[in-house]
């Protein structure tokens, strides 16, 4: 089966000359369709930079990145925007919902940029919100929703364009333990239905619920297939 992510010899260097910072150094990583995978590592390890590259928000300095079989490492800004729109779904720590829009309208937003017809947008957005258990909150504004509900709206927004992969950047960082579990359950359900999920987290108890942990250190992948159960031991090492 074709991998969703194939990173080959990825370098990411910020600045030039004396101020050069090597954020990623010869990173190689393959994530296959249907995986549920956590990216971890101490701060400054390069996991965020790796996430930006994987999310097509940033281009590597060198190396190849095949996303769903297409090399996206050299695409222009607008081409990357198109790839993000069609192939990726993002979930952020701070939810990033637009406050002036209802839950339904927030979920419709990626389809607006994809050029989906209005009636279909509405239908699919309602469907996605139903899937995350918010069928009765379609017309609420973000400020009328709890943190967990807001994050579920964000997840609905991330899956509504039927992406090949869901990218979550510290998705439970702003949630209490109970809503964290609700959100993780949704990720598990989505993954069970076939969606690839890649998540950056620094919480071992969150990573433990994924199927694979990729450990970054000093801009490199130190361990790319750690079992979540090995985590406790690993955190001690770091």
């Amino acid at each position: 089966m074709q991998p969703v992510i194939r990173l080959e010899h990825i370098d990411k260097i910020y600045g030039t000359g004396d101020t050069e910072v090597r954020a990623l150094s010869d990173v190689n990583l393959v994530v296959n369709t249907g995986e549920y995978c956590a990216i971890m590592g101490p701060s400054g390890s390069g996991k965020s930079t790796a996430m930006n590259v994987i999310g097509c928000l940033d281009r590597p300095t060198s190396g190849s990145y095949y996303l769903d079989g297409v090399d996206v490492a050299r695409l222009s800004d607008d081409e990357l925007a198109h790839v993000r729109n069609r192939k990726l779904g993002f979930v952020f720590q701070q939810f990033h919902l637009l406050p002036q829009l209802s839950a339904l309208e927030n979920v419709m937003l990626p389809m607006v940029y994809a050029g989906v017809a209005a009636s279909e947008r509405r239908e699919r957005a309602a469907e996605a919100l139903t899937r995350v258990g918010l069928a009765n909150r379609l017309h609420n504004r973000p400020n009328q929703l709890s943190g967990g509900q807001q994050q579920r709206v964000a997840i609905a927004r991330a899956i509504v364009n039927r992406p090949v992969m869901l990218l979550a950047d510290e998705p439970t960082g702003a949630l209490d333990s109970q809503t964290t579990q609700e959100v993780l359950n949704i990720f598990s359900e989505l993954n069970a239905s076939g969606i690839t999920v890649v998540m950056v987290t620094h919480e071992p108890e969150v990573a433990r619920q994924t199927h694979r942990v990729v450990w970054f250190r000093d801009g490199m992948v130190q361990n790319d297939n750690m079992l979540p159960t090995q985590l406790a031991q690993m955190s001690l090492v770091s």
């Binding site: 069609r86 993002f90 952020f92 990033h96 940029y113």
Partner: peptide
């Protein structure tokens, strides 16, 4: 700024 960032992340082009 955050709204613009979000819009770009979910697929808005510069022109959008």
């Amino acid at each position: 700024t955050q709204e613009i960032g979000l819009r770009k992340a979910i697929g808005a082009s510069r022109q959008d």
